[in-house]
Protein backbone atom coordinates (compact mmCIF):
# COMPACT_ATOMS: atom_id res chain seq x y z
CA UNK A 1 0.00 0.00 0.00
CA UNK A 2 2.63 2.50 1.03
CA UNK A 3 5.03 1.62 -1.72
CA UNK A 4 2.19 1.49 -4.23
CA UNK A 5 1.51 5.17 -3.82
CA UNK A 6 4.98 6.48 -3.22
CA UNK A 7 5.26 7.71 -6.78
CA UNK A 8 2.13 9.79 -6.49
CA UNK A 9 3.33 11.40 -3.29
CA UNK A 10 6.47 12.65 -4.96
CA UNK A 11 4.29 14.09 -7.70
CA UNK A 12 2.12 15.84 -5.15
CA UNK A 13 5.23 17.25 -3.47
CA UNK A 14 6.46 18.62 -6.80
CA UNK A 15 3.09 20.07 -7.63
CA UNK A 16 2.87 21.85 -4.34
CA UNK A 17 6.39 23.25 -4.58
CA UNK A 18 5.45 24.74 -7.93
CA UNK A 19 2.17 25.99 -6.56
CA UNK A 20 4.01 27.59 -3.66
CA UNK A 21 6.30 29.47 -6.03
CA UNK A 22 3.29 30.84 -7.91
CA UNK A 23 1.58 32.15 -4.82
CA UNK A 24 4.44 33.25 -2.63
CA UNK A 25 6.88 34.82 -5.05
CA UNK A 26 6.55 38.35 -6.27
CA UNK A 27 8.77 38.15 -9.32
CA UNK A 28 6.68 37.70 -12.43
CA UNK A 29 9.11 35.45 -14.25
CA UNK A 30 9.58 33.31 -11.18
CA UNK A 31 5.81 32.93 -10.95
CA UNK A 32 5.75 31.63 -14.51
CA UNK A 33 8.54 29.20 -13.67
CA UNK A 34 6.41 28.02 -10.78
CA UNK A 35 3.48 27.60 -13.11
CA UNK A 36 5.60 25.51 -15.46
CA UNK A 37 6.72 23.29 -12.60
CA UNK A 38 3.14 22.92 -11.40
CA UNK A 39 1.94 21.91 -14.83
CA UNK A 40 4.85 19.61 -15.51
CA UNK A 41 4.16 17.72 -12.30
CA UNK A 42 0.59 17.22 -13.40
CA UNK A 43 2.00 15.72 -16.60
CA UNK A 44 4.14 13.40 -14.51
CA UNK A 45 1.01 12.32 -12.67
CA UNK A 46 -0.80 11.46 -15.90
CA UNK A 47 2.14 9.54 -17.24
CA UNK A 48 2.44 7.63 -13.96
CA UNK A 49 -1.18 6.62 -14.32
CA UNK A 50 -0.40 5.25 -17.76
CA UNK A 51 2.43 2.97 -16.63
CA UNK A 52 1.76 -0.73 -16.62
CA UNK A 53 4.22 -3.06 -14.92
CA UNK A 54 6.08 -5.08 -17.52
CA UNK A 55 4.54 -3.06 -20.30
CA UNK A 56 6.53 -1.48 -23.07
CA UNK A 57 6.22 1.67 -25.13
CA UNK A 58 2.94 1.75 -27.06
CA UNK A 59 4.42 1.15 -30.49
CA UNK A 60 3.13 -2.12 -31.84
CA UNK A 61 5.76 -4.79 -32.43
CA UNK A 62 5.75 -8.54 -32.76
CA UNK A 63 6.08 -10.57 -29.63
CA UNK A 64 5.02 -7.88 -27.20
CA UNK A 65 1.71 -8.36 -25.48
CA UNK A 66 1.76 -5.83 -22.66
CA UNK A 67 1.80 -2.16 -23.56
CA UNK A 68 1.62 0.91 -21.39
CA UNK A 69 -1.57 2.93 -21.75
CA UNK A 70 -1.31 5.24 -24.76
CA UNK A 71 -4.24 7.50 -23.94
CA UNK A 72 -2.67 9.58 -21.15
CA UNK A 73 0.39 10.00 -23.37
CA UNK A 74 -1.80 11.58 -26.01
CA UNK A 75 -3.49 13.85 -23.50
CA UNK A 76 -0.19 15.00 -22.12
CA UNK A 77 1.26 15.69 -25.56
CA UNK A 78 -1.61 18.08 -26.01
CA UNK A 79 -1.23 19.51 -22.52
CA UNK A 80 2.51 20.16 -22.95
CA UNK A 81 1.79 22.18 -26.04
CA UNK A 82 -0.93 24.12 -24.28
CA UNK A 83 1.49 24.75 -21.41
CA UNK A 84 4.24 26.18 -23.58
CA UNK A 85 1.71 28.36 -25.40
CA UNK A 86 0.60 29.80 -22.07
CA UNK A 87 4.17 30.38 -20.95
CA UNK A 88 5.04 32.15 -24.18
CA UNK A 89 2.05 34.44 -23.96
CA UNK A 90 2.78 35.12 -20.29
CA UNK A 91 6.34 36.09 -21.15
CA UNK A 92 5.12 38.44 -23.85
CA UNK A 93 2.91 40.15 -21.31
CA UNK A 94 5.83 40.35 -18.86
CA UNK A 95 8.04 42.01 -21.47
CA UNK A 96 5.34 44.59 -22.04
CA UNK A 97 4.85 45.07 -18.30
CA UNK A 98 8.56 45.67 -17.89
CA UNK A 99 8.44 48.33 -20.60
CA UNK A 100 5.45 50.03 -19.02
CA UNK A 101 6.47 49.85 -15.37
CA UNK A 102 10.21 49.24 -15.56
CA UNK A 103 9.81 46.43 -13.06
CA UNK A 104 8.85 42.80 -12.92
CA UNK A 105 8.14 42.70 -9.21
CA UNK A 106 4.54 42.48 -8.09
CA UNK A 107 5.16 44.83 -5.19
CA UNK A 108 6.54 47.72 -7.24
CA UNK A 109 3.90 47.40 -9.91
CA UNK A 110 1.12 47.60 -7.39
CA UNK A 111 2.79 50.56 -5.72
CA UNK A 112 2.88 52.40 -9.02
CA UNK A 113 -0.77 51.57 -9.69
CA UNK A 114 -1.83 52.87 -6.32
CA UNK A 115 0.00 56.12 -6.93
CA UNK A 116 -1.54 56.84 -10.28
Amino acid sequence: MLIGHYNYWVVVALMMLGFYIIIAHGNLIKKLVGLTIFQTSVFIFYISVAKVDGGSAPILADGITQYSNPLPHVLILTAIVVGIATTALGLAIIVRINEAYDSIEEEFIQQQDNLS
Binding site: I47, S48, A50, A57, H73, I80
Partner: peptide, 13 residues
Protein backbone atom coordinates in the same frame (compact mmCIF):
# COMPACT_ATOMS: atom_id res chain seq x y z
CA UNK B 1 7.54 5.25 -17.97
CA UNK B 2 7.45 4.07 -21.62
CA UNK B 3 6.11 7.38 -22.87
CA UNK B 4 8.60 7.90 -25.68
CA UNK B 5 6.60 10.43 -27.64
CA UNK B 6 5.94 12.50 -24.57
CA UNK B 7 9.59 12.30 -23.54
CA UNK B 8 10.64 13.55 -26.95
CA UNK B 9 8.22 16.47 -26.73
CA UNK B 10 9.08 17.33 -23.14
CA UNK B 11 12.78 17.31 -23.97
CA UNK B 12 12.29 19.70 -26.84
CA UNK B 13 9.77 21.89 -25.03
Amino acid sequence: MDAVDVAFTEASV
